[in-house]
Lab assay of single mutants.
Amino acid sequence: MFKRLMMVALLVIAPLSAATAADQTNPYKLMDEAAQKTFDRLKNEQPQIRANPDYLRTIVDQELLPYVQVKYAGALVLGQYYKSATPAQREAYFAAFREYLKQAYGQALAMYHGQTYQIAPEQPLGDKTIVPIRVTIIDPNGRPPVRLDFQWRKNSQTGNWQAYDMIAEGVSMITTKQNEWGTLLRTKGIDGLTAQLKSISQQKITLEEKK
């Protein structure tokens, strides 16, 4: 169930391209415009997507990853294993993690069937560096609404905000991946996880038929 919630949630996290980005210092504006741009692209490019579902990787690479804190999220997933990894191991892992996100997020976007969304009203940021933004996803086919909290983090150097995690039903996506990959990290280390991520990233994206 959580895996499905995570995939549905990713439908609204794909941010804007650099040329049309919203105010990078306001995570609420980023979330709002990102959702609108993403849904528009999914709707307008269905012919290309249906002809070649792996085209979704391109959308992810162009529109999402430049505005997601990939390395920060990847380091959180590694936890204690990050500090013990060599620079070469980290570089290989982050490259594999990025390719994994292209496949995983692309597969999530393949679930698009006309969903709509509501974003919580903007709250004062103050001096906060981590801000959760509640998004409610509404399914046109009558499924119950899904309420999610996207975690946005302020870059201490640039002042810009980027998304790095999502919490559904009190469970963090980062925590879920830590639990899912924990045994592999304990037995085969970061190299074993890197190899698995490379394998997963090679899987073809498949479209979910409308139910």
Rank of each mutant, 00 (worst) to 15 (best):
G74Q: 13
T158C: 14
A19P: 13
A108E: 11
R57S: 02
E91A: 02
R143L: 13
N52V: 05
L184K: 06
I13R: 03
T176P: 06
A14C: 01
Q36G: 10
K29F: 02
E45H: 11
I137K: 15
R147G: 03
A120D: 07
I205S: 11
A120R: 07
P121M: 13
R50D: 00
N155C: 11
L42F: 06
A92R: 10
F150Y: 06
D61F: 00
M166K: 10
R4I: 11
P121N: 13
D149V: 12
Q115E: 05
Q48F: 02
A85S: 08
Y117T: 13
R153A: 03
A104K: 06
A163H: 02
L109A: 09
A9P: 05
M6Y: 00
R50H: 01
G189K: 12
K210D: 04
L197Y: 13
N160T: 12
I130N: 02
E99H: 00
D32M: 01
E91S: 08
L5N: 02
G182L: 13
G170V: 03
Q80L: 11
Q203I: 00
N160D: 10
Y93A: 07
S172P: 10
L65M: 14
I119D: 14
P53C: 01
A195V: 10
P27I: 00
Q115L: 03
R41M: 05
S199Y: 14
Y100K: 14
G114I: 14
R41N: 01
K177T: 10
F2C: 09
A96D: 06
K29W: 05
M173L: 05
V70Q: 02
P121S: 14
A22K: 14
K37A: 06
R147P: 09
K188I: 13
K71E: 06
Q178F: 14
K188D: 01
A9S: 05
K43Y: 15
D61W: 12
R4V: 05
D165G: 13
E209S: 09
T136I: 01
Y72L: 11
L56G: 04
A19V: 10
S201A: 07
S199P: 12
I13Q: 14
I49D: 06
T194A: 13
I133D: 15
T136N: 14
E208F: 14
T86R: 13
T38Y: 11
R90L: 05
Y93L: 06
V146M: 14
Q123R: 09
F2H: 06
L64R: 06
T38W: 04
I174M: 12
I49L: 01
E169A: 06
E45M: 03
I205T: 10
D40W: 04
T58F: 08
L78F: 09
G74T: 08
P15Y: 08
A85Q: 00
M173N: 12
L16A: 13
L5Y: 14
G182I: 15
Y93F: 00
D61K: 00
V146F: 14
D127M: 13
E91T: 09
R4E: 01
G159R: 09
A195D: 07
R98Q: 03
Q103F: 03
T187N: 12
D61C: 00
T176H: 11
P144I: 05
A75G: 03
D139C: 12
I205W: 06
L78C: 01
E63I: 05
Y28D: 12
Y93I: 14
P132E: 09
V146R: 06
Q178V: 08
A34G: 10
K37Q: 00
M173W: 13
M173Y: 08
L148T: 14
Y112H: 12
Y55D: 09
F97Y: 01
W152T: 02
E45R: 07
R4M: 09
P27W: 14
E99N: 00
Q46I: 03
A14T: 04
L30N: 14
Q24N: 11
K102W: 14
L193I: 06
L207N: 15
P15S: 03
E33L: 09
S156E: 02
S201W: 14
L65K: 15
Q115T: 11
E45G: 11
G159K: 13
D32F: 01
I138D: 13
R50F: 12
M173K: 03
I133N: 10
L30S: 05
D40M: 15
D127C: 15
V77Q: 12
L11A: 01
P145Y: 12
Q151E: 15
F94V: 01
T175S: 06
M7D: 00
L42E: 05
D191W: 05
Y55R: 06
F39P: 04
I174Y: 06
T158A: 06
A108F: 08
T194V: 08
A22S: 04
Q118E: 03
K198Q: 00
G159F: 01
Y72K: 03
D139G: 12
D40Q: 01
Y100M: 14
S201M: 00
G192H: 11
S201F: 14
H113V: 05
P15A: 10
Q24F: 01
P87Y: 15
T25D: 11
S156M: 14
L185F: 02
L5W: 01
K29S: 08
S84I: 04
I205H: 14
A163C: 09
G189H: 00
S84W: 05
F39Y: 08
A108D: 11
N179E: 11
Y81H: 07
G126D: 06
K198S: 10
A35E: 05
G192L: 06
A73S: 08
P47S: 04
P132H: 05
P124N: 12
Q48W: 10
L10G: 07
K188F: 05
M7S: 01
Y67D: 06
M7T: 01
R41Y: 10
E99R: 01
D139V: 06
A14L: 10
V131M: 12
N160Q: 13
A21F: 04
P15W: 06
G182T: 10
T187W: 13
T38G: 08
G142F: 14
I133H: 06
E45T: 04
A120I: 02
P66H: 08
T206N: 11
Q157L: 06
S84G: 04
D40Y: 15
Y112I: 03
D40F: 11
T175A: 15
L30G: 03
R134N: 01
G170N: 07
Y100N: 10
I119A: 05
P15K: 09
L64G: 10
M31E: 05
Q178P: 03
T25R: 10
D139M: 10
D61R: 01
K177N: 05
A96P: 03
A19Q: 00
M1C: 00
G192R: 06
Q118G: 11
K71Y: 15
L78N: 04
I137M: 15
Q123Y: 14
D149M: 09
A104C: 15
E91D: 02
H113L: 13
D23A: 03
A73F: 15
M1I: 00
F97R: 06
R98K: 07
W161F: 12
G79A: 09
T176F: 13
A73W: 11
V70P: 04
M166Y: 09
Q162Y: 06
A88T: 14
D40R: 03
L148A: 13
K71R: 06
